[in-house]
């Protein structure tokens, strides 16, 4: 839902980042307003996963230039847990397994940290169980998964459901979903997508990072951005995804070649 007057939640300006000495992001600009769903598409290695992890504060990436403002404040100054508590959520492409740590306990601690940051009350174990059972429905997840260790022995689909369950519990304002469709069969994809659609509200925004159109068949984006070589090359409406699907990513390379000539004004490629 595009509302020009909706408040800006996330504003990325000229973002440059490296991993080790390797530059990955070379000037990303992106503005997300409340109520919007954005999709960032691109090939492997285009920098889209870097962007998502960097926004969540992964320590492997170093920002060398540019700014990220979350509701006007400097997001990059915050530790990963502070970002999460403030309402920035990353759904991981490969959620790690954490043996021994109970999923239920983990979800409760995380939820309470977020609730406290929102000025709410901590939930006791009973109240939390009620909440989590209700939210389980969003992703049609079996409560048995609550009793297991975090992601341990979960199938790919179960891990992704667990991610969306966390999103449902943490109630973020900016949700970045990194390749949420990868490793999902069509039924799981539908369930997860339905969950995301259910969680999208006029007050929050969603950034989908994906390689394929098929996720966007289920979750309709307001904007589609094409990323390559660490920059956003083109931005348009949902029809851009279809064009990508039809023409492949090769034409992006052409765009990239021409952009190299116009290095100084990379942003000119963006739709104003």
């Amino acid at each position: 839902m595009i509302r020009p007057d909706a408040p800006v939640l996330l504003e990325i300006r000229n973002l440059h980042a490296t991993v080790g000495d390797q530059p990955i992001l070379k000037g990303v600009d992106l503005t997300l307003r409340a109520g919007e769903i954005h999709a960032v598409m691109g090939r492997n290695g285009s920098g889209k996963s870097t962007l998502s992890k960097l926004l969540a504060g992964h320590p492997a990436y170093t920002v060398t230039a540019g700014t990220v403002r979350y509701r006007g404040d400097d997001l990059l100054a915050l530790a990963p847990e502070e970002r999460a508590r403030a309402g920035v959520f990353l759904g991981f492409q490969y959620p790690v397994e954490i043996p021994g740590v109970s999923n239920l306990e983990f979800l409760r601690v995380a939820t309470n940290a977020r609730r406290l940051a929102q000025g709410g009350e901590e939930l006791d174990t009973f109240a939390f169980e009620d909440l989590v059972c209700e939210r389980l429905k969003v992703v049609q997840m079996d409560p048995a998964f609550l009793e297991r260790s975090v992601n341990e022995g979960f199938s790919g689909g179960e891990k992704k459901r667990n991610e969306i369950l966390q999103m449902a519990l943490l109630d973020p304002l900016v949700a970045i979903l990194d390749e949420t469709d990868s490793g999902l069969d069509i039924d799981a994809l539908r369930i997860v997508s339905a969950g995301v659609n259910q969680l999208a509200t006029p007050d929050n925004c969603i950034l989908l990072i994906t390689h394929y159109q098929r996720l966007l068949d289920e979750i309709t984006p307001d904007f589609v951005h094409v990323m390559a070589a660490g920059r956003i090359l083109r931005t348009a409406g949902k029809e851009l995804a279809l064009e990508l699907e039809r023409r492949g990513y090769d034409w992006v390379d052409e765009g990239l070649a021409s952009s190299d000539h116009a290095e100084a004004d990379a942003t000119a490629l963006e739709v104003a």
């Binding site: 847990e81 954490i98 940290a113 260790s149």
Partner: peptide, 23 residues
């Protein structure tokens, strides 16, 4: 990082994992 990205502080993350290890 996973635990921190869900709002759980560093020390609490470590102690959660240690106590999971000892469960």
């Amino acid at each position: 990082f996973y635990l921190q990205s869900r709002g759980i502080g560093l020390e609490e993350s470590v102690s959660m994992m240690v106590s999971g290890f000892c469960r």
